[in-house]
Nucleic acid binder design. Structure first.
Lengths: 152, 152
DNA sequence: GCCATTTAGTTGAGCGCTCAATCATTGTCG
DNA sequence: CGACAATGATTGAGCGCTCAACTAAATGGC
């Protein structure tokens, strides 16, 4: 036996399972609400949000992939769908002939504007309303720590 | 205007995005590791874990669905795959003729036993090692609160 | 006791994702 | 300069999931 597994103690076990249950339930709920009310999954909503915040409502495909924590492949497939829906369009990048720029269309912006209030309400109801201000702060620190730790 | 949207303030926005980034990165990483090392997604691993802990290494399909936070449909599809792999089998329930009982096979148990150390190591490395004991405790309380809030 | 309702589980279509392979362009360095 | 690696993005196969529809059996009034 080269390395002894450091098993989870009962407290860690409980924490891990609670986290799994909660984060899955939260994301499933929001995803379902968004699908029902706006006809798109949460991942697509996020893409539209990032584009809407970018200067000129446009981003290079790779920047968009990084911003949404998505693989390039995933973003390509998603962009194809979003383009077919008329919510974004893809243009050639003027400075890099390999590159593409995703641009949020007016239709896309309108769909996003229609979806946002309901979704934000959902995030508030299912996340922020359930936690104390102190817990929200703790969750932010924990998440930022984990994110930093994972990207290394 | 019937109801004014309660938008997220900058702090809430930051918390929400950090949570999204962290939980997605964490689950993606663990999923990829499990797929690479054990040839199964995390959801399937969880199914095998729950079965391994149940008396007689067996559970009713609906209990298993509840335990893994899965829809019945999802579990049915997963069970079909796991059965084809020889890791579980499904038997008729003796007390309810509509029911099915999922049973972990010896092969399934062996695969789980082989996968567990690596996966636990991953959970430790990517989650517990990054957080202080106090943060782990906070995360448990937050998760349990959210889970309770969501199931209502 | 019977019919409507509920519960258990499965199925198929369709969608989103991953992985690996691919193509084109750009960067690098001897 | 020119070869080779690195980067940007897409593609197709295959898998897992959702949703809605479905079958079958159990339950609950009246």
């Amino acid at each position: 036996m080269v390395v002894m597994t450091r098993w989870l103690d009962p407290d860690e076990q409980r924490t891990w399972r609670a986290f799994l249950t909660a984060s899955r339930a939260l994301m499933d709920t929001l995803d379902r609400e968004l699908q029902r009310d706006a006809g798109m999954p949460h991942a697509y909503y996020e893409i539209l949000v990032r584009l809407s915040e970018a200067p000129g409502r446009q981003l290079r495909m790779s920047e968009l992939a990084d911003a949404t924590g998505s693989s390039r492949s995933r973003l390509s497939h998603a962009a194809a769908r979003l383009e077919a829906a008329g919510w974004i369009r893809r243009e050639d990048c003027p400075t890099d002939r390999r590159g593409q720029v995703a641009v949020l269309t007016d239709d896309g912006f309108a769909v996003l504007a229609a979806a946002a209030p309901g979704h934000v309400e959902g995030v508030r109801r299912h996340l922020f309303d359930a936690l104390s201000p102190a817990q929200v702060d703790q969750l932010r620190r924990i998440s930022e720590t984990l994110a930093a730790h994972l990207e290394s």
